[in-house]
Simulated scan of single mutants.
Amino acid sequence: MLQLNIKNETSRLRAVVLGSAVHNGPTPSLDEAYDPKSLEHIKAGTYPVEKDMVAEMDAFNAVFQKYDVKVYRPEMIENYNQIFARDIGFVIDDTFVKSNILPDRERELDAIQYIIDQIDPLKVVRPPEEVHIEGGDVMLWNDHVFIGTYKGSDYKDYITARTNMYGVNFIKELFPNKIVKEFDLVKSKIEARDNALHLDCCFQPVGKDKGIIYKRGFREEADYMYLVNLFGKENLFHIERNEMYNMFSNVFSIDENVVVSEKNFTRLNNWLRANGFIVEEIPYAEIAKQEGLLRCSTLPLIRD
């Protein structure tokens, strides 16, 4: 039996699902792109190829092995993108919530069913159909649950809007003892530099009291100020528009003082080291072309 336990983003990691880039399938056509960044690379002929992405995920896996983390991988589906495990489910405390994802991604959930089967069935939840919520929008901070959403009346027109207010309210009801705070995110179907696909594209806590933040990812200044007041401005690393585009806020914590980051994130990695973090640098720039990075590729199951 898997005893799930996730209370925040940074405690010592013990078990995680890491996505897979094996048999990732051909480069999608333009109308198959789920996000503006993939679209950009499909048009430019720079969309990542399987062998490069497999090598990047192998480097990530090697870091997990170094820290003695139990790693689960999804079962392989031919010609199918299974990199972004974060989208398909998430753990809050000891409960596994299955995401209602875009319909053509449903098979990604089937590929981790063998893991879900090891969890107490009473601790596995599937929200009702009208609830849209993806793991990239759900962030735990001890007694807080931060959730990215999009409150625009044109929600349904945006394939980049992944979590709705039904999703926020569902979590509020499921976890009445948590402070559930939603953040209205900026969305764009056409310009990746102005699209916060998920909350972890414009914010993520690191360590005990620090965070990485992109102010312009929030539609409401009050939402941004909520985090500034909670963490303290001096504890937040503010990223620029191009750094947001390159996914600087999508690093991944193995422990309160250990962060896995992309090797090209020089400004961020220097700040992390200056603040006492061990930074495990790996190449992940090819996977980043699909508007997802390190946090997006993981689904943590157990932290201390």
Rank of each mutant, 00 (worst) to 15 (best):
16 V>G: 08
228 V>Q: 10
123 K>A: 01
22 V>R: 14
147 I>Y: 03
99 S>V: 13
247 M>S: 01
277 F>L: 00
105 R>D: 11
89 G>V: 04
271 W>A: 00
30 L>K: 14
150 Y>N: 15
277 F>R: 01
273 R>Y: 04
256 E>K: 07
89 G>D: 03
293 L>W: 00
203 F>R: 14
247 M>T: 03
85 A>V: 01
50 E>F: 15
131 V>C: 06
143 D>G: 06
234 E>F: 09
297 S>Y: 09
203 F>M: 14
196 A>T: 15
75 E>R: 15
60 F>P: 02
151 K>C: 15
100 N>G: 08
253 S>K: 00
66 K>N: 05
224 Y>P: 06
257 N>S: 08
264 N>T: 03
92 I>F: 11
129 E>C: 03
94 D>E: 07
246 N>T: 01
65 Q>D: 15
189 K>M: 13
133 I>D: 04
36 P>D: 05
293 L>T: 00
55 A>F: 05
113 Q>F: 11
130 E>N: 00
20 S>R: 11
187 K>P: 09
117 D>Q: 14
19 G>T: 10
52 D>N: 05
45 G>W: 07
221 E>F: 04
141 W>V: 07
288 A>P: 00
94 D>Q: 10
162 R>T: 15
70 K>H: 14
27 T>M: 14
270 N>K: 05
182 E>N: 14
212 I>N: 00
224 Y>W: 02
65 Q>W: 07
33 A>T: 14
142 N>R: 12
246 N>K: 02
28 P>L: 08
303 R>Y: 12
226 Y>F: 06
13 L>T: 14
73 R>Q: 13
217 G>K: 15
96 F>I: 05
284 Y>A: 10
183 F>N: 11
119 I>K: 11
235 N>Q: 07
73 R>T: 10
257 N>R: 08
237 F>W: 00
288 A>Y: 00
43 K>S: 05
123 K>P: 01
302 I>W: 11
31 D>L: 04
231 F>M: 06
293 L>D: 04
39 L>S: 03
125 V>C: 03
93 D>F: 09
169 N>E: 00
3 Q>D: 15
209 D>F: 05
201 C>Q: 14
30 L>F: 12
27 T>P: 12
273 R>P: 02
249 S>W: 02
53 M>L: 01
21 A>D: 13
255 D>W: 02
261 S>A: 13
177 N>Y: 14
107 R>V: 07
10 T>R: 01
107 R>Q: 15
42 I>Q: 02
292 G>W: 00
240 E>I: 08
23 H>K: 12
265 F>C: 03
180 V>H: 02
255 D>T: 03
71 V>W: 14
